[in-house]
Design a protein around this nucleic acid. Structure first.
Length: 541
RNA sequence: GACCCCUUCGUCUAGCGGUUAGGACACAACCCUUUCACGGUUGAGACACGGGUUCGAUUCCCGUAGGGGUCGCCA
């Protein structure tokens, strides 16, 4: 659904800034660098739609060629996910990405990705790769190539200079030490910890020599700043609570606060959906938007996800990368369903496939209280999606896990066997890891080496019975689970034993375990020759 | 400390002035059953507290308590 936004002063400032900056040039450069980085960081591929120009170049194509009126009409939703690459994509980030993606898909808008790598100290290629990998696993595809914020420093600085020229910003010559002293004093006296505006109205001629200044926003000091948040509602803060934030550091590099606003504006972001740890940033960012005369995007601040104990997510439970859940054997669709239901609801619905989620998702359904991460529920959901999943797909996903356990790869016939084992297997495994554990016996070579419990089952009497049964089974015309079951049941009845008394030795002989899928399925999966051979093995001690 | 946000079963949530407060996960019992699971049935389990407003509050308002977030030339 298209969202109409009043354009107002938007177009004026927009064209002004694009006139002063060779837009085509920097956007192209940015794109080139983004591609270069993508290539440089190696193997991951991100699901951008091929053959489309990136958001920025297209935007500036519009600005340069189209008449203004074409931009005055309804605008489609543009969301973005903007992680800083200082670590893996944790569960909260994954949910934020999911919500942005869902909202874009729901509205027929665009989902963009921006890597906020302006902190050169902490940003790493590994983190970028890990984040991309996680998003790719979760199948949250962006509609454009990712934008690397670090490539945009010039544009950010340009905007800061513009604000300076327009009297919306000023140079501040305070040293970090002075600032720290200011904060310490304020804290000690119980005053709000804010910059006191020392240089706000001072004449530049008083500037100390040899000190390179920062550029601060000349924020309004009276009145209040209001944000209209689709989750939190209207939230107002007195401007007296907000100080003059730094836009440009003394080394000329942009701060996060500036970079976010400029990029969101230039990318045409209409909806900012993010964790509510950014709530207070929204006020300051709003002030920057307003200083530039730009439209403020719609905000939606989503409550954070906590650990099972209600405290911040720690390494023990969920502050691990999303790909850790992949490694634990969860299916991406299960993860998406779980994350969706964490903080968002649609009546009593629990099982919500992605297609359904796209249809239903809306910002109003997001709850306002923080939620706790619950592995048990994720696991339950995973079981559901495992049951639904295609056997061939599950076999492909399980194969690497099995290969690791067996210390060898599966060959083609083994893959076929694994696939054949899936129908009886997948509804009793909660994760792919369990699936691997529980199918491993299929690939152990003969003779079967029964584990302790299975050995106890294989008494001499049991072995004798297996020998008898084997003879009968060998005569079965059609080697199917049904036919085999009929034979075994008939035998059990004849000798006056419960089916369990007969089935357990069979299970032990075939699998070397006391727990497995139904033995008839196991025999069917093994095939006549292998099954009979294993039974034969069990008759000799 | 200042500012902002939050508060329904253990957990995720439904509820949007009048309900036996619903569902899901987890838990318990039973059923099914060749093991393990799945599945089925049943059960236990919540409106943080105190004031208002109202004929009537889980729902609206105000406090209190508890929890969370933010207060960097980090993002």
């Amino acid at each position: 659904m298209p969202v109409s936004r009043p354009t107002g002063s938007h177009s004026g400032h927009c064209s002004r800034s694009s006139a002063s900056i060779p837009a085509r040039e920097w956007s192209t450069r940015n794109r080139a660098m983004a591609h270069a980085r993508t290539g440089a960081s190696g193997s991951y591929r991100f699901g951008c739609r091929a053959g489309q120009p990136c958001a920025l170049s297209r935007r500036f194509d519009l600005l340069n060629r189209r008449p203004l009126s074409s931009r005055m009409q309804t605008m489609t939703v543009v969301t973005r996910f903007a992680p800083s690459p200082t670590g893996f994509l944790h569960i909260g980030g994954a949910r934020t990405a999911l919500f942005n993606w869902l909202y874009a898909r729901h509205t027929g808008g665009k989902f963009l990705l921006r890597i906020e790598d302006t902190d050169k100290e902490r940003s790493t290629q590994e983190a970028i790769a890990a984040i991309m990998e996680s998003l790719s696993w979760l199948e949250l595809d962006a509609d454009e190539e990712p934008l690397f914020q670090s490539t945009r420093a010039q544009r950010h600085a340009e905007v800061a200079r513009e604000m300076l020229a327009a009297g919306k910003a000023y140079r501040c010559y305070c040293s970090p030490e002075e600032l720290q002293a200011m904060r310490d004093a304020a804290r000690a006296e119980g005053r709000p910890v804010r910059y006191d505006g020392t240089w706000r109205d001072r004449d530049p001629s008083q500037a100390p020599a040899g000190v390179s200044p920062v550029i601060r926003l000349k924020a309004p000091q009276e009145g209040e700043t209001k944000i209209v948040d689709r989750v939190q509602g209207e939230v107002t803060v007195a401007n007296a609570q907000l100080d003059d934030l730094i836009l440009l550091r003394s080394d000329g590099t942009p701060t996060y606060m500036l970079a976010v606003v400029v990029d969101d504006h230039d990318m045409g972001v209409t909806h900012v959906i993010r964790g509510d740890d950014h709530m207070t940033n929204a006020f300051r960012q709003t002030q920057i938007f307003q200083a530039m005369g730009w439209d403020v995007p719609v905000f939606a601040h989503v409550p954070l996800i906590h650990g099972p104990d209600g405290a911040k997510l720690s390494k023990r439970h969920g502050a691990v990368g999303a790909e850790a859940y992949r490694d634990m054997g969860f299916l991406p669709e299960a993860m998406r369903n779980y994350l969706l239901r964490l903080g968002w609801g649609h009546g009593d619905d629990e099982i919500i496939a992605t297609g359904q989620a796209i249809e239903w998702f809306d910002l109003d359904g997001i709850g306002r209280s923080p939620s706790r991460f619950d592995m048990a529920k994720l696991t339950a959901l995973n079981l559901h999606y495992m049951k639904e999943a295609d056997g061939g797909r599950l076999a492909r996903l399980t194969a690497p896990l099995l290969a690791a356990r067996l210390d060898r790869a599966l060959d083609q016939s083994e893959m076929a066997l694994l696939t054949a084992a899936m129908p009886s297997m997948k509804e009793r495994a909660k994760t792919l890891v369990e699936l691997a554990e529980q199918t491993e016996f299929y690939f152990h070579p003969r003779p079967v080496r029964p584990d302790e419990k299975a050995s106890k089952v294989l008494t001499p009497e049991a072995r004798a019975a297996i020998a008898e049964l084997r003879e009968e089974l060998a005569t079965v015309a059609e080697w199917s689970a049904e036919a085999l079951e009929a034979v075994v049941r008939g035998y059990a009845e004849r000798v006056g034993l419960g089916l369990g008394k007969v089935a357990q030795p069979l299970r032990a002989a075939l699998t070397g375990r006391t727990v497995s899928p139904p033995v008839f399925d196991v025999m069917a999966v093994f095939g006549r020759d292998e099954a009979l051979a294993r039974l034969q093995d069990a008759t000799v001690v």
